[in-house]
Amino acid sequence: MHPQPHPRRPGRSLAGTLLVTLLTLGLSGLSAAPAPADEAVRAALPPQQPGVTQRVFDIQVPLNDLCDLKPGQTPNIDTLKPVVDWTSAADFGLDANFVTHVVGQLHAPATGAHTLRLTSDDGSRLWIDDQLVIDHGGLHGPEPKEATVDLTAGPHALRIEHFERGGGEQLTLAWKPPGASAVTLVPNSALSTDADVVRVTAPGRKECEAGTDSPGDGLPLTGVHPNYTLTDLRPPGFEPQVSAMDWLPDGRLAVTTWGGSNNTAGEVYLLSNVTGSTGPGRVTYKKIASGLKEPMGIKHVDGKLYVSQKHELTELNDTDGDEVTDQYRRVATWPFGGNFHEFGFGLLY
């Protein structure tokens, strides 16, 4: 069972992260051939709307090339854009020292060779179906770079990364699809992105990965400490946003879930068969409490469970013996405001 990262803080996973190195080619004029998307995958696309998603990260330090952002960071700007043709600070929302991510679907009108032209100031890279087809990195002015890709008719995953150090800024995606006589801006009708999404942003500086970083600097763990054995305990379909845990005397595990900022959707579960020789197929879970406001601590004392919510300490009482909470007794309260770090994490007895 792995805690889900808090949306406003970089998450840290106890499981090792598999690092995959992709062999990429991005020379000007290179002909690349991404594999045709499986028809079932295309049909499984979530609801779409015209345009692309633009996410901008305020790095606040000068870059010489594109960087890998530390995982779990929320963008400063997350917005829907009709096309990829941005030539001013107003188009990006920032004027210097930022990284831009573009995600969406590129809809090929017909099967065949498509010439793609990426113009950027400063550097940029373009992926189609997770294959790098244009590498236009480094510091430079608004220069174009082209590649030709063979695409089947229909949607293909589009991803662009771009950075701006200073001076002018630009990111433009143009193409020449089969049958076209000239390169033109990729139109809104050929672009789509996921619809009905909640666009979450956060102010402040965002960070790139560095060669001296370690998991304590916001990177995921690359492995499990040799003194520990990692066992997956999460049953299929059970994906809690774990915020606190405590053991019961009978060996069961009590777990609280976060529930979302400014909501009362936090819950408490009791998990059985979580020790000894076990696995996801043997673990069972039962919801025993709900309607909690961001519970961040739980403790079993004298036969009862106590939960620290954002605004109070709560005693969970089962009055009819079915282990489901029938009475939520307020033990203590404390003031809280808009700062999500203001309430207490963990619960000690």
Rank of each mutant, 00 (worst) to 15 (best):
Q73P: 01
N76K: 07
P71S: 07
D38G: 12
Q60A: 13
L66Y: 05
V83R: 04
G51R: 03
L69Y: 06
L63Q: 01
L80V: 08
R55M: 12
P62I: 05
A44E: 12
D65T: 09
R55K: 12
V56R: 06
A40L: 15
P47G: 06
P71T: 02
T74Q: 08
A43H: 15
E39N: 05
D68K: 13
T53C: 00
Q73W: 08
Q48P: 00
P36G: 08
P62Y: 05
G51L: 14
Q48H: 04
P71W: 11
P62H: 00
N64T: 10
P71H: 05
A43P: 03
P50A: 08
P36Q: 03
R42Q: 11
I77M: 07
L45E: 02
T79V: 13
L66N: 06
Q49E: 12
P46F: 02
V83S: 09
N64C: 10
A43T: 15
P47C: 04
R55Y: 00
P75D: 07
K70T: 07
K70F: 12
N64S: 12
V41N: 02
L80Y: 07
K81A: 11
P47Y: 01
A40R: 15
D58S: 11
N76S: 13
L45G: 10
L80D: 13
A40Q: 13
V52I: 15
P36F: 08
P47T: 09
L69Q: 04
I59S: 02
P50T: 05
D38T: 00
T74I: 09
V41C: 14
V52Y: 07
P62C: 07
Q73T: 02
L80W: 05
L45A: 03
R55S: 15
L45T: 00
P75N: 01
E39Y: 10
A43L: 11
N64G: 14
P46A: 01
G51F: 00
G72M: 01
A43N: 00
P71C: 04
T53R: 15
V56F: 06
P47V: 01
A44L: 08
I59D: 03
P75V: 06
A44Q: 08
E39D: 13
D68W: 11
P82T: 09
F57W: 02
N64A: 11
V84H: 10
L63R: 06
V52N: 00
Q54P: 04
A37G: 15
